[in-house]
Design a protein around this nucleic acid. Structure first.
Lengths: 323, 323
DNA sequence: ATGAAAGCGCTAACAG
DNA sequence: CTGTTAGCGCTTTCAT
């Protein structure tokens, strides 16, 4: 069986308390004892049991991360930085892909609570999950409002939408179409749409209902060109949709950027590597990640911090060629 | 404070054991008692503490996942399916990004052991980590040999390399260059290179040393065209490198596929969405994920299963246009 | 400077 | 059908 603290104590000829002391570097220990203990640890190949420790300490150093799907450049980059930053502070990430399904998200949320996570970072799009109302559970929501009282970290979606649409207008587009996910109230991403609607005389938005199905997205986009053949600009609310626009345009022999200009949204590293010509709005993904983690850790430590309820980070237009 | 089992018991007027019984649906309980208990659970908004449960059961239902970086379409897709499949079997994923650094991987591995994970799935590229030699810790390695005795799940890398290079030859390429990551012994990915070397008269392989730096990759690729201006075919050992080839070719006004043909490797959904014209070798990512999880769970349950030490899944050429 | 004992929240014998 | 008790592995008063 696995060695436990008691085994180490016996082998070193000391009490469990003493072993615990050297493990945690707490209290006074003679150099000699410390050596004996450390030798025993080596010899037994002992690893402290963090489950037992967590039970006692009422702290797991686990952070639950709920997102729609890690298999998306924006979320995977976000997750990378969240994991990194968390690790820097001694926290571990439990990964949950809700796939946008309410029931999955619910069961993940309660699973995380049962596992005594110290906090959660949620960037999924479902509301009304009771578990989030669990009093005193530190939560940070990324880029959408989860529930009153839960801080939101995100980027300036209205500004991003404005930058995108204004750029298309500046480039001479006359008929600009917007593509967005399903309209949900109070989602900051809908502010991109608001900006579009504020800047364009007769706004037309196509909604992609099944964000997880690229072919369905392509079908919707083909409809744009059938129903609005005069379209000369598209503002897509994320880069994957923008990529699908480019693909469809290519199928239809529509030249980008001459006949059609396309602006995406997110500007993740992966998309920029694979599709460097895509003009897009870059979200400060790393900063969103870091800010979220730090805010969450502050909540966990109950630092008296000034209860910041919404953090809005700046975005940037990357003018790369498709618009 | 958070409600615990004892509080539920008190409120329901029964013993803790009884509460535990209804929680776990074990043993005989009268319907009346069950109701009382369930009401108390509701009323107290009680969530069982899985940490305490794990401590007792000597089982956490945690699986550690170590990969170089989740911010890569291949790994993020893999991680999605691994997480999904694990969740289907009641396991949770702890995400670790080693960033290819030995020390990070080491500390992640021992963190996971301290946290009593029931098993680990490792798709990182470092060898000689002692923690992996921890006897009886179930491990599955994805696409590389970790240590003797640890099962490997992967796809047919030699066949993939062969398909790629043969395709380039069939398309008329005379001077085919291969791009790969740093040469490491016993990495199945090196079998792609082996296939290339077996099929080409005078093989030339460029090594990308810093896989995490796209600009460095671009620099190396530019060197190819300086040093071998007659290059008419490139087999890149992953799609991101292939994408960088396309980008550099574009900079240099080299037409793909007329003057240069490029074949990538992986064929993840994300890359196929963003760069649908890329000809590549598709790995069966979902199957790799599922197989790994199932094999690991078998190990965890000590199912007597036939100790399969290497599982090789088939690959497929996706002939999309860049070659 | 070190040890004994209690307890974190839960479950599983074992009784009854 | 239900309760009592011990203990999972660790940490921490409180003694000494």
């Amino acid at each position: 069986m696995k060695a436990k603290l008691e085994d180490v104590a016996k082998l070193a000829g000391v009490s469990p308390t003493t072993v615990s002391r050297v493990l945690n570097n707490r209290g006074y220990i003679s150099e000699k004892t410390r050596q004996k203990v450390e030798n025993a640890i080596q010899e037994l190949n002992y690893y402290p049991n963090d489950i037992a420790r967590s039970l006692f300490k009422q702290r797991t150093n686990f952070i639950g991360l709920i997102l729609p799907t890690i298999n998306n450049p924006f979320f995977s980059e976000l997750a990378l930085y969240i994991e990194n930053e968390s690790a820097n502070h001694g926290f571990k990430i439990i990964l949950c892909n809700s796939l946008g399904q309410l029931d999955k998200e619910k069961s993940y949320a309660s699973m995380l609570i049962r596992h005594q996570v110290d906090g959660m970072i949620v960037c999924s799009y479902n509301r009304g999950i009771e578990a989030y109302r669990n009093p005193k559970l530190p939560i940070v929501a990324i880029d959408h409002y989860l529930s009153p009282g839960i801080p939101v970290v995100g980027s300036d979606n209205y500004e991003g939408g404005k930058l995108a649409v204004q750029h298309l207008i500046n480039q001479g587009c006359k008929s600009i179409i917007h593509i967005n996910g399903p309209a949900e109230l109070e989602t900051p991403a809908q502010k991109r749409r608001k900006a579009y609607e504020d800047l364009v005389k007769s706004p037309i938005t196509y909604e992609i209902t099944d964000l997880f199905n690229e072919e369905a997205t392509a079908v919707t986009i083909r409809r744009i060109f059938e129903e609005h053949p005069d379209t000369d600009g598209i503002f897509a609310s994320d880069d994957l949709m923008a990529a699908t626009c480019l693909k469809v345009a290519n199928e239809l022999n529509i030249n980008v950027p001459d006949q059609l200009k396309v602006v995406g949204y997110d500007g993740s590293q992966t998309v920029m590597s694979l599709l460097p010509q895509l003009t897009t709005i870059r979200q400060p993904i790393k900063e969103i990640a870091k800010t979220s983690v730090l805010n969450l850790i502050d909540q966990i430590n109950e630092d008296p911090m000034e209860e910041i309820m919404e953090i809005v980070l700046p975005v940037q237009l990357l003018n790369n060629g498709t618009a």
